[in-house]
Write a protein that binds this DNA or RNA. Sequence first.
DNA 1: TCAAAAGTGTTGCTAGTACACCCATGT
DNA 2: ACATGGGTGTACTAGCAACACTTTTGA
Lengths: 241, 241
Amino acid sequence: MSGFQKENYIPQLSIDCVIFGYKNNELKVLISKLRYGKELWSLPGGYILQTESIDEAASRILKDRTGLDNIYLEQFKAFGGKDRIIGSEFRELVREGLHNFDPNRFDDEVIDWVTSRFVCIGYYALVDLNKVEPRIGEFEEFLKWVSVGELPKMTHDHNEIVAAAHKALRQNLDEKLIGFNLLPEEFTMREVKELYEAVYDREFPMNNFQKKILGLNVLERLGKKFTGAQNRAPYLYRFKR
Amino acid sequence: MSGFQKENYIPQLSIDCVIFGYKNNELKVLISKLRYGKELWSLPGGYILQTESIDEAASRILKDRTGLDNIYLEQFKAFGGKDRIIGSEFRELVREGLHNFDPNRFDDEVIDWVTSRFVCIGYYALVDLNKVEPRIGEFEEFLKWVSVGELPKMTHDHNEIVAAAHKALRQNLDEKLIGFNLLPEEFTMREVKELYEAVYDREFPMNNFQKKILGLNVLERLGKKFTGAQNRAPYLYRFKR
DNA sequence: TCAAAAGTGTTGCTAGTACACCCATGT
DNA sequence: ACATGGGTGTACTAGCAACACTTTTGA
């Protein structure tokens, strides 16, 4: 396997992905623990091939990390602070880490390339968390779903990026009806409501919420869901088309 | 004067500005006629210094073109199609044009740099058209205010970029109360209404519009504006703070 | 029969729209 | 006085929130 071919990529430009999932009434983000350093967390990201569009790059990066095709994906903002560069003290750490990992693959030129100042384009993705099989990238130890409220301090401005993604999600969830991408095929109205509550961090009265969502005419009602609980069985719904 | 120092800039990444102005009941965009080619129109843009943030770069580019500081400026989208590159046939034209312009300044390396594939970050700006003193850039013949409805075919995907900027403006005008950046210091309610009509391309009934805007509590009423017309003199307003 | 939660109906508020009307200004 | 457009008030409507109520399910 040959070394990293930096010539194939656009320099100083990267894509960072905020992958949203939903479980246990919590909105979660898939973040990665980096190999080097002890408590170094980061958003999954990657570079852009000279031969692909930035949207294609984002899809490819997402497929690499989640194994999923046809994910709902949206570009929300570019981040270009002049300080978006790995600090000199940390730079040595990276150099060491990469050298230890594979000295042939990561020569000094590549390391300079990787540690230069980057502008990044932020994309957020909405996935059915249960379908994702996280796959670690080269520099990563493992990937983890973390609730948006409990994120650790991440590298660079990645916390800020998640915050911006969350804000964009809030603005779009209602308007573009994209929330169903976070749920499994079939779901109950309560699950939709609790998803909305997780995203907006506030409560919605069930009756009005139901009326509103049904009024959109985007759900079809399937059978009932019998759970064995001693209460009326809720209907199951599916997103139309 | 030395040649263009490409080392000072981030390669393959540019900023394009959609500068909105308002005059004669029309929403206008400042576009530039390029030197080479006969009917080559383009959005004003520029590159990002290694030492500045992308927001700073956008402000700098805008100041260069309009002479204005403290312009309302908003990043709205990044454009990264793989075809965002000057076609080979046109490339020769650029080479010629730049060489004729100043052979010392634009050597082949610089020309390769300039004509490589670019990802661009789109910003839109809102200015008081009367305050702008357009200043041409190096490759430009002149700048011109053109109504959004009458734009010529522009280079690359610049028409698409303007469309996206217009869409972003529509989404933000109401919510963020940014429209007043397009008007002079003092204005009548009718002018605000007509601005809104230009942006949204539809009519607003005057009475309800007035109620809505005044209800926002962001305007202070000044004196009246006597025009000599044989009707009641309208109030002048100013945006608070 | 009862508890738990699903689902529906009713009322009232508010924001936006349509309509009607009065006011200031210069001829 | 009157034409012209500025400005305000009133009634109507639709969408949303708060409340009350009925229905289903399994113990």
